[in-house]
Simulated assay, not measured.
Amino acid sequence: MSSAERTRVSTTAVSVVAACLLTLLVPGLRATVDVMKDVTLGFGEALQHCREESQLTEEKMEEFFHFWREDFRFDARELGCAIKCMSHHYNLLTDSHRMHHENTHEFVKSFPNGEVLAAEMVSIIHGCEQQHHSEPDHCWRILRVAECFKVTCLRRSLAPTMELLMAEFIMEAEGS
């Protein structure tokens, strides 16, 4: 086999391996985004329940639906209070208002294919809590943790797109 033939075979082999890896990785990536979408929608079901307790205005409630947008602002304490309430609703916080690791892991696993993301989500949230542990106000701390969580998920390509969430909202509305 000539040098040119070996180069072509080697290049072809690399291309085949790369294509196989992409085939394996992209569906996995898509699966985690789908799980994050399901977790987001499932967690969001508690928002209406928490509206009064967290003193959310109708306008702030609508803002909440844009959580995954890059320009979403984490500047309203009542959003942190709403997230705290929603987390309590699903028993995801300890008495000290910190993430309950086991319950959060199980909550994420309760969604279809949730096991592919449960440990990573718990790890991300825990890391974010460590960064903001000194904030004495629970609502502000939880809001900072949520912001850190979002930024980390966006960086890791785990966040669902607004288009994906909107499509799901529409499908749910049509099914009602």
Results as ranks from 00 to 15, higher is better:
160 P>L: 10
159 A>W: 01
86 M>Y: 02
86 M>T: 13
83 I>K: 05
144 R>H: 10
108 V>F: 07
69 R>Y: 01
109 K>H: 05
54 S>D: 07
102 E>T: 12
86 M>Q: 00
46 A>Q: 05
164 L>P: 04
147 E>A: 14
92 L>G: 06
34 D>H: 14
79 L>C: 01
44 G>D: 14
148 C>M: 03
65 F>Y: 09
73 R>I: 11
147 E>N: 14
45 E>D: 12
104 T>A: 07
136 P>H: 05
40 T>M: 06
59 E>V: 10
58 E>I: 12
162 M>F: 08
63 E>M: 05
133 H>S: 06
41 L>A: 03
98 R>E: 15
39 V>I: 05
113 N>Q: 09
31 A>K: 05
62 E>W: 07
65 F>N: 07
47 L>V: 07
89 H>L: 08
96 S>W: 15
85 C>D: 04
116 V>S: 14
160 P>M: 01
71 D>F: 10
137 D>K: 13
99 M>N: 02
111 F>K: 00
38 D>P: 03
105 H>N: 13
37 K>Q: 00
62 E>A: 08
152 T>I: 11
107 F>T: 11
54 S>Y: 01
155 R>G: 01
120 E>F: 09
130 Q>I: 13
79 L>E: 00
140 W>Y: 13
65 F>Q: 06
71 D>V: 12
39 V>H: 04
144 R>A: 09
33 V>I: 07
93 L>T: 15
99 M>W: 11
39 V>P: 04
126 H>L: 05
90 Y>R: 09
146 A>Q: 07
82 A>Q: 10
162 M>I: 03
79 L>F: 05
50 C>F: 03
116 V>I: 11
40 T>Q: 00
87 S>Y: 04
124 I>C: 00
149 F>T: 14
48 Q>I: 12
160 P>R: 05
114 G>A: 00
164 L>K: 11
135 E>M: 09
105 H>Y: 14
110 S>T: 13
65 F>T: 06
103 N>I: 12
42 G>I: 10
100 H>T: 06
85 C>L: 11
74 F>D: 03
42 G>T: 12
157 S>Q: 08
163 E>N: 10
52 E>M: 14
99 M>D: 03
50 C>R: 00
90 Y>E: 14
124 I>G: 05
66 H>F: 14
41 L>D: 02
159 A>S: 00
150 K>D: 07
118 A>M: 06
64 F>D: 02
45 E>C: 08
134 S>V: 13
46 A>T: 07
149 F>N: 15
124 I>A: 06
113 N>V: 01
143 L>A: 08
98 R>V: 11
136 P>K: 08
41 L>P: 02
61 M>V: 05
61 M>T: 09
136 P>Y: 13
108 V>R: 06
160 P>V: 13
78 E>G: 04
136 P>T: 09
164 L>F: 11
138 H>N: 08
109 K>A: 03
138 H>L: 14
127 G>H: 01
127 G>W: 02
154 L>D: 10
126 H>Q: 02
140 W>R: 13
108 V>W: 10
141 R>Q: 11
35 V>N: 01
104 T>H: 02
64 F>I: 01
129 E>F: 14
71 D>W: 08
57 T>W: 10
50 C>L: 00
98 R>C: 10
70 E>K: 02
133 H>K: 13
49 H>F: 12
67 F>K: 01
56 L>E: 01
